[in-house]
Design a protein around this nucleic acid. Structure first.
Length: 281
DNA sequence: AGTGTCGCCTGAATGC
DNA sequence: TGCATTCAGGCGACAC
């Protein structure tokens, strides 16, 4: 599933492959994905030149020279695939949106589960857009500090795992990286957000950045053509310390597995959490 | 306002 | 082999 590092990697790839190209037309192969497509989506983008591609949280922003911004969210199963002009392969199952570029190149948005979305905005309305208005700081921006994290967690009774997944606190920490960051910080995911000491908050802040940095590096280093064609390319999964590792020993663990049971899986807010009961306090 | 829960959706994995 | 069930999850929407 695409998380922030994967979305970042896809954005970098799109900058190389489609930036500066003219969007001949968008082809919508159904009327909606997670949400209905905006009525003017095709008309408002026809013939525009793609100026730049950026990322905000897990949204891909395709900036057009006519002032429109196409918002793309990959959801759970979304992937963007480049098909060059010579590629005459007919659309595959779940190819819901096709960007036809001048010269015959296509960008295919394939999303089996349709948790993804495509929407339209302008720079002016973006901060007020319903998907963006509530977003907190980017994890690598100056606005995300140990202090801002402390403020986000302060007095909260919800579990710290759920708190750091709250997009108002910091964007981009999904279910996997929440578990990974808490393991790195040696903090029990079940603890209430407000119970962390200033020192623990600072450790957690650094851990969130470290985990995401490593994940982006993994994506960037193993990527082949930058736009993921198999949906898994460059994924961080081989570096997971606890995620999906229930019953296993954690990294460099010397605990007796029979006694501790190893990494534990619990459910918080309807989502799986993985942690080491011995190391995370 | 803070918190908890639901639902969208399909394919893979599992169970009988 | 085949059918039914369960699970995965980002995040907006909603209920309290």
């Amino acid at each position: 599933m695409p998380e922030l590092p994967e979305v970042e990697t896809v954005c970098r790839g799109l900058q190389k492959s489609i930036q500066g190209k003219k969007l001949a037309r968008l082809e919508l192969r159904r009327r909606d994905m997670r949400f209905p497509f905006p009525k003017n989506l095709v008309a408002a983008t026809r013939g525009a030149v793609i100026r730049n591609i950026t990322r905000r949280a897990k949204y891909i922003l395709i900036h057009l020279d006519n002032g429109q911004i196409i918002l793309v969210h990959l959801g759970m199963s979304g992937r963007l695939v480049i098909a060059d002009a010579a590629d005459k392969t007919p659309p595959a199952k779940h190819d819901h949106v096709i960007f036809h570029l001048d010269g015959g190149m296509r960008l295919l948005f394939n999303d089996a589960r349709r948790f993804g979305l495509v929407d339209l905005a302008t720079a002016e309305i973006l901060p007020k857009h319903r998907f963006f208005a509530h977003l907190g700081p980017e994890p690598f921006d100056d606005g995300f500090t140990a202090q801002s994290l402390a403020t986000g967690l302060k007095n909260k009774k919800i579990a710290v795992k759920l708190a750091i997944m709250d997009q108002r606190v910091v964007v981009g920490v999904g279910n996997i990286y929440a578990s990974e960051a808490l393991f790195e910080a040696k903090i029990d995911p079940r603890r209430s957000a407000g119970s962390l000491s200033p020192a623990e908050v600072k450790t957690l802040w650094a851990a969130i950045r470290a985990v995401l940095t490593r994940a982006i590096a993994a994506g960037g280093s193993s990527i082949r053509d930058y736009v993921q064609t198999d949906g898994e390319l460059g994924y961080f999964q081989h570096q997971w310390a606890v995620y999906d590792k229930q019953g296993e020993k954690c990294r460099k663990c010397t605990c007796p597995l029979q006694k501790t049971g190893g990494i534990k899986k619990i459910v918080q807010g309807g989502r799986s959490t993985f942690y080491c009961p011995a190391k995370q306090k």
